[in-house]
Amino acid sequence: MSDRTLFEKYGGFASVSKVVLAFYDTLLDSDEIGPFFDDVDMSRMVDHQTKFISSLLGGPASYTDVQLRQFHRNLDITNAHFDELKVVLEETLANHGFEPEDIQTALDAIEARRELIVD
């Protein structure tokens, strides 16, 4: 059994960055989630999300619970928004060659943070 993290298994920041760019391409087209990003500096957002997804996969650059709560407060993110985000993440990871059990690990990690993100 390997001690490699999913972050290492799937190619580190370069690969995660590609996943995040594809993830946002889909999210920005969403009628429900897209408007959250209307006035957002997307290059900064992609950088932050790359670090966040990397941390979910066992890589460096994690965010604290306090930071996650602070970033998302006052955004009125609902459970439905969060669920849609998870579906898009699942599809994006699958499209980038992640194995089903590894996708589930990432989804479980983000689900564990639902209460920090959903208003």
Rank of each mutant, 00 (worst) to 15 (best):
V16G: 02
D47F: 11
D65L: 03
N79R: 13
S54Y: 02
V16F: 06
S17N: 13
Y10S: 08
G34K: 08
T64V: 04
F82L: 09
D41Y: 04
L68C: 02
R73Y: 06
R44Q: 15
Q67V: 10
R4H: 10
F13Y: 12
D76K: 15
D29L: 14
S62N: 05
E99I: 03
D38H: 08
M1N: 11
L27C: 13
K86L: 12
R69K: 15
D119A: 12
R113K: 11
E99F: 04
T78G: 09
L68D: 03
P100Q: 05
V88G: 08
T5Y: 05
L85R: 13
L57R: 03
L93V: 00
K18V: 10
D31N: 14
F37R: 05
N95F: 00
K86M: 12
A112I: 01
Q49G: 05
R73C: 07
Q104R: 12
G59K: 03
V118Y: 04
P100I: 04
D31E: 15
K18Q: 13
I33M: 14
E84H: 15
S43M: 14
Q49Y: 08
L57K: 02
D83M: 12
V40R: 01
S43C: 11
V16Y: 02
L28C: 10
A112K: 06
L68M: 12
N79D: 15
M42H: 08
I77W: 03
Q104I: 02
K18E: 11
R44A: 15
R4C: 09
D102N: 07
V87M: 10
L85N: 10
V16I: 10
K86T: 09
M1H: 11
H81Q: 11
K9P: 00
S2P: 13
F37Q: 10
E32R: 15
V19N: 03
L57T: 00
L27K: 07
S43D: 15
F37G: 10
N74Q: 13
F13M: 12
Q104Y: 02
G34H: 09
S15P: 04
G11D: 03
S30W: 05
T78A: 09
D83C: 09
T5M: 06
V20Q: 01
T26M: 08
L28A: 09
R44H: 15
M42R: 10
F37M: 08
M42G: 08
E8S: 09
E99V: 03
T78C: 07
H81V: 07
